[in-house]
Amino acid sequence: MPDPDQNIIADLRDENKRDLAFHVLVKTYQERLYWHIRKIVMNHDDTDDILQNTFMKVWRNIDKFREESSLYTWLYRIATNESISFLNSKKKKHMMALSEDSDYLVENLRSDPYYSGDDIQMKLQEAILRLPEKQRLVFNMKYFDELKYDDMSQILDTSVGALKASYHHATKKIEEYLKNTD
């Protein structure tokens, strides 16, 4: 059975099929990428903007996609990089220190009218947001997105061993945070 992503890639590279193929790509990956980005920036409007930038970057760069990874992995990498760039520009614009970064994200979470979690879920999200950026990314990708370490390695350009260590440290910090906030 042919890989549906291979068909999307081939159609994206065909001038006559490009528009329809792009529509299929967006329809296929929009929701997963939305939630991946949302867990990074914690704001619906910012997530929509970053998602749009991600798909625009895909549209402009599909000819440069060398297929060394899966289409899904490539999309996640672009979305992750766009999200990190967005947060970094926010930090610069507001002259935030690294410690204020998590405060900013927690405030986004608390003031989000679309957030519907209970107190326990809020505490878990706050614990995750208090992690260093890389540990937060790794934890979200492994725990919520259920990505394999090999895919995460390609997305984040990091060794599998480093990712496993980051995940381990993240889970320990989350456990500690949850124990100390009761």
Rank of each mutant, 00 (worst) to 15 (best):
Y149T: 11
R136C: 11
F86M: 07
S69E: 13
Q154S: 11
R136M: 15
D46M: 08
L71C: 15
A21I: 02
L129K: 01
Q125P: 00
P132M: 06
R130I: 02
N53M: 03
K164A: 07
T181V: 15
Y143I: 09
A127D: 01
H23G: 14
D101T: 01
V160R: 10
D150V: 13
Q125S: 11
I84K: 05
Y104H: 12
R110S: 05
M42K: 07
M152P: 07
I120R: 14
P4E: 11
A21C: 09
A170R: 08
M95F: 02
H168S: 13
Y29P: 06
Y177N: 08
Q154W: 00
H169F: 09
I128D: 04
M96C: 02
H44L: 13
I174N: 11
I78V: 14
T54Q: 02
H36K: 02
A127K: 05
D118V: 10
R110L: 15
E126M: 09
L20W: 01
M1I: 14
I50E: 04
A79M: 07
N180A: 09
T73C: 12
L109N: 03
R32V: 06
D157N: 02
A21W: 02
M122H: 01
Q121N: 06
W74H: 09
K27G: 10
H94M: 14
S116G: 12
E175L: 10
R77G: 13
L129V: 04
D48L: 15
Q135I: 02
N61T: 09
N140H: 10
K93R: 14
L137F: 04
L20K: 12
K134T: 08
E67Q: 15
M1R: 13
S85G: 09
L25M: 04
D46I: 06
K93L: 07
L51N: 03
I50K: 05
D48V: 02
T73E: 12
K179M: 13
K57Q: 12
